[in-house]
Design a binder for these strands. Structure first.
Lengths: 218, 218
DNA sequence: TTAAATTTTTAGACATGTCTAAATTTATAT
DNA sequence: ATATAAATTTAGACATGTCTAAAAATTTAA
């Protein structure tokens, strides 16, 4: 039996090594989960015991096939529930995270399957994040972070890479949501902030914001 | 903060003292929850500390106003989720209990409100059990258990009082569901079993089954 | 009304997941 | 190359919720 805590650790490692597939360090996991490095050490030992991670002392850990499948299923559930909350219960995209953090741990394969069907098999959640399939595949986004766009080019917002109320509320205030058209006008080299055109109006945003906006070129 | 375990104890006491409002004994609670009397003793002390129950050693416990409100909210969530699973995700009425046992602990007032609205404010769940309102009121059923019906009278099934797969599957096999018309033909005094007419066909059922079927006379 | 049976509580143990402080290992910089 | 800094693990503690076995209180029945 896998516990709620274990699921949270697996999910953290999964999300931290999405692109890299490299070992993830104790401290990074601790920061992601919001706990101490000591607790992470303890837990990595337990997950190693259960063959959910490969863990080498002082070197970090990565997911086994079994661990990756479990983590992927938790992320899948999280994003399906977020989609449900926004599409069916009219939640705002900024207020679904905490509830989905709870719902992602509900254990019922049938529930997930039915929810998926009820939502018409979505590939992306309300933040544009890909929803892993039942087999653990991750839909391709074909996007780049806004700060990597070439000056002068335009694209559509396809997603965001963090799911925090204050960030999402700020985007809403800027009139940015999934599908919004953005043109990169100028990069300020001093602080890497950006002048951009959102639909028809000009705005200035920080590097910190830009790097969490996923753009598909048009 | 209230824990999942505490919620389960409050719910158990709530359901065991629905009509009576009397003190509930340690052993009865232990049986309901499926744990030992020792564990119940321990927990009652904690709930007493938190002013969720009034507990007198060796005498049992009953809910305080605060405890009753919390318990009622858990039962409300359980029954709303069961309604969601059956009405929206096409679950069978016999397979929703275990999932609802998990979902009832999700903490989000907004989620419950939105779910209630999404389901069009139901008063009864798929088993005919009343769904407590937000204020903790319990919709009236005006029903009697089938075994208390007078021989020769007829009524409609309005609900069942246990939520177990084997019982519900058996009812389905007997062609009994919410709304089914039943006439009591004969009580066998030896074992209190009943001969009944279900819609148009005659059947024989045990006292054990009859007492869990809620009938409204027509 | 007193002995026996039942119920309930207490005592002590264990597993889980967390923490802080100290010890150890690894990385960095002179 | 070695001292220092940073990262990581270990040791020991604590809270929660559970258990079994033994003790205490209550109920039942002769």
């Amino acid at each position: 039996m896998i516990t709620l805590s274990e699921e949270n650790y697996l999910k953290a490692i999964f999300l931290l090594s999405l692109n890299t597939n490299e070992k993830v360090s104790t401290n990074i996991i601790a920061a992601e989960i919001g706990t101490s490095a000591a607790s992470v050490s303890d837990m990595l030992k337990k997950l190693q015991e259960k063959k959910l991670v490969e863990y080498e002392k002082y070197k970090g850990a990565y997911l086994t096939k079994k661990g990756r499948a479990l983590a992927s299923s938790v992320v899948r559930k999280h994003r399906l529930w977020e989609t449900f909350l926004v599409n069916k219960l009219n939640f705002d995209w900024g207020e679904v995270h905490d509830v989905a953090e709870q719902l992602e741990h509900i254990k019922s394969e049938k529930l997930v399957d039915r929810l998926d069907s009820f939502l018409k098999y979505p590939s992306f959640d309300p933040h544009g994040e890909p929803i892993p399939t039942k087999n653990g595949e991750i839909p391709d986004t074909n996007t780049v972070p806004l700060n990597k766009l070439k000056t002068g080019t335009a694209g559509k917002v396809m997603g965001v890479t963090i799911d925090e109320k204050y960030f999402l509320d700020y985007l809403t205030k800027l009139n940015i949501s999934i599908g919004t058209e953005i043109k990169l006008l100028e990069k300020i080299s001093f602080d890497q902030s950006l002048n951009i055109k959102i639909e028809t109006t000009n705005q200035h945003i920080s590097h910190e914001v830009a790097k969490h906006l996923l753009i598909k070129m048009i």
